[in-house]
Amino acid sequence: MNVDIFETTVEIDESRIDESPAAIREQVYEYECRDRQEFDLTVTTPGGLTGEVMTAMSKIPYGETRTYGELAADLDTTPVAVGQACAHNPVPLIVPCHRVMGSDGELKGYSAANGVATKRRLLALEQGRGTKQTQLPIQE
């Protein structure tokens, strides 16, 4: 399924989430409006390193970031492997791969439309630099 946020589209594999598409869209809308800091959705992660990285990313608090290297050290792997796992996150935004950045402080890729620009906007929103949205909720 596709969800719209900040005039861009994020593709989410809804088969990995137990709740309905309507519930997912409502929570994304609340997040965009800064009325929600955590998603209350049941996500089934894939096996292997991608699932381990997704679990680690889901523990990064709202408004904070970690580097690929920090996650790699925690998971006893390499930053490149963490980056590859982030790129395979089937539920970006819900599992916040936008909170992972390079060790140099630079934002690296993001799988949603508009890539790094979308990642930058999500982080700005979470760090209080974005504007609160006033649009109507997305309808199915």
Rank of each mutant, 00 (worst) to 15 (best):
V116P: 00
L136M: 07
P92T: 06
T77C: 12
E126R: 04
G83E: 05
E30P: 11
V91G: 03
S111F: 00
F6D: 10
I17F: 02
L41R: 00
D74A: 12
Q127K: 05
N114Y: 14
I17G: 00
I12A: 03
T42C: 08
T65F: 11
Q84I: 09
M54I: 10
G83Y: 01
G47Y: 02
A23T: 11
T78M: 12
Q27H: 03
Y68F: 15
P21S: 09
P137Y: 10
H88C: 09
E106M: 12
C33R: 15
S15D: 13
N89A: 02
M57F: 03
T67P: 14
Y29C: 05
V3L: 11
L41S: 06
A112K: 05
A124N: 10
K132L: 06
R121L: 15
D4T: 13
M54R: 08
G109Q: 07
A22S: 15
G51M: 00
E19C: 06
V91T: 13
E126N: 01
C33L: 05
Y29N: 09
R99N: 07
Y29I: 01
G109F: 09
T9P: 00
V116L: 04
T67V: 14
A73K: 13
M1L: 14
I5R: 01
S20M: 06
T65Y: 01
D13L: 11
M101A: 02
M1A: 12
A117N: 14
G51T: 00
E11Y: 08
P90E: 01
D40N: 10
L122E: 08
D35Q: 15
R129D: 09
L71Q: 07
T65A: 02
P21K: 12
I5V: 12
S111Q: 11
C33E: 06
T77K: 00
T9K: 12
Q27S: 04
T118A: 05
I94Y: 01
G102F: 03
D35K: 15
V100C: 07
V3A: 11
D35N: 15
E126L: 06
M101N: 09
A112V: 03
E32H: 14
T65C: 04
D74N: 11
V28S: 04
E14L: 11
E7D: 10
S15R: 05
I5L: 15
Y31Q: 06
Q133T: 13
S58N: 15
E38R: 15
V80A: 03
F39W: 12
A72I: 01
P96A: 12
E30V: 03
G130M: 08
S15K: 11
A87N: 09
T44L: 10
E19M: 08
T44S: 15
L125M: 13
Q135A: 14
T134I: 10
Q37S: 12
L49G: 08
V116I: 15
A87R: 13
E14M: 06
S15N: 07
A113G: 08
R99I: 04
G48A: 14
K59F: 04
T118S: 07
V10I: 13
A124M: 13
L123T: 00
T9W: 04
A117R: 13
M54H: 04
R99Y: 05
T44P: 08
G128H: 10
T44H: 15
E70W: 10
G47V: 06
